[in-house]
């Protein structure tokens, strides 16, 4: 297994109290595999990824426990400079907002080349050639002429390609993409997702795709982990989860999105609001919004039940959820 996150806990100490952003998350990614982490804002999907990358702001963030095994070694036990070597070389991250993630006062060529200068000890001249090569690879037209351009001179889609180029530069074995296409228009989103999927195949990388878009997930993922209030509530291979969700939250999400191929009348709506992380409801965090909630759901946090091989659901009534279609 390329990456294994085991029982990870992350909390933020704020003036109002302790926000429990991640409460015992487990997931794993193999080489060449795409894991989609699905969740709404505040579900802890990005915080988990930041902990894996080692870019969590600490303080206020604090890793409360757990292990992050990358190629069998626990990242949380590593020294700072050891981790820095892994970051960029072996794992890289693509952010949602390319404009604020790129340095506005350095040309894209310099930023891409920097990867090779720092990690590979190349000369600046060679690094620039490498930068052009990378820009070609992510299909930026006229790469040679544009290598000296600054981020603001590129369109949103092109900037996201540069982000991808930068992440790919040192051919890492794991890429974490945090909402990589959310800020883009649909036609550009399709271009960027295709590029990402193609490069992933070529380099046989593991990909963690963090998103709230059930459509994007269905298009590219192999397996899904659905997060709610800092926990994984359901994980499954992609085909199965869409066909028959085993958690009421997943089911509600799937039913609540309008579809391109259907002129629906009334949409199913999950009642209520996502919980405040300072006051997560006792028991199952979804219970105040759940149509199936019983006494037991308010009392004890449900463990992950094995639904089938490679399928888990954190619901006492997963069987009923599966059956009631």
């Amino acid at each position: 297994m390329l990456l294994e996150v085991r029982d990870l806990h992350v909390e933020f100490h704020t003036r109002e109290g302790v926000a429990k952003a991640v409460n015992g998350v487990n997931y794993s990614v193999a080489e060449g595999e795409t894991l989609a982490v699905l969740g709404e804002s505040g579900s802890g999907k990005s915080v988990t990824a930041q902990a894996v990358m080692g870019i969590l702001d600490m303080p206020p963030g604090k890793i409360g426990g757990g292990e992050i095994l990358f190629k069998g070694r626990d990242l949380l036990k590593m020294k700072k400079d050891e981790r820095r070597k892994i970051r960029g070389q072996e794992m890289a991250m693509i952010f949602q907002d390319a404009l604020s993630s790129l340095n506005p006062v350095l040309s894209v060529g310099e930023q891409l080349g920097e990867m090779f200068v720092v990690h590979r000890g190349m000369s600046h001249k060679d690094a620039k050639l490498k930068a052009v090569e990378l820009m070609d690879r992510v299909r930026i037209p006229a790469a040679k002429e544009r290598v000296g351009n600054y981020p603001h001179q590129f369109s949103g889609g092109m900037r996201q390609r540069i982000m991808i180029a930068m992440a790919m530069a040192l051919e890492p074995s794991l890429i974490i993409a945090d909402e990589p296409t959310t800020a883009l228009d649909v036609t550009v989103q399709a271009q960027v997702m295709d590029l990402l999927a193609e490069l992933q195949r070529e380099l046989n990388m593991g990909l963690i795709l963090i998103t709230h878009d059930l459509g994007v997930v269905a298009d590219v993922a192999d397996k899904i982990a659905v997060m709610y209030a800092g926990r994984i509530v359901e994980s499954a291979p992609v085909h199965e989860i869409y066909r028959a969700p085993a958690h009421p939250y997943t089911k509600g999400l799937l039913r609540s999105i309008p579809r391109l191929d259907q002129k629906g009348r009334e949409l199913y709506a999950i009642k209520g609001l996502p919980p405040n992380l300072l006051h997560i409801p006792p028991g199952c965090a979804f219970n105040p919004r759940c149509p199936m909630a019983q006494e037991i759901c308010r009392g004890e946090v449900p463990p992950l039940f094995e639904v089938a091989e490679h399928r888990e659901s954190a619901c006492y009534f997963w069987k009923e959820t599966l059956d009631a279609r």
């Binding site: 459509g215 269905a218 085909h239 869409y242």
Partner: peptide, 9 residues
């Protein structure tokens, strides 16, 4: 055609 449809099938 570019809109992702929430259905892996």
């Amino acid at each position: 055609s570019a809109v992702p449809v929430p259905d892996p099938a």
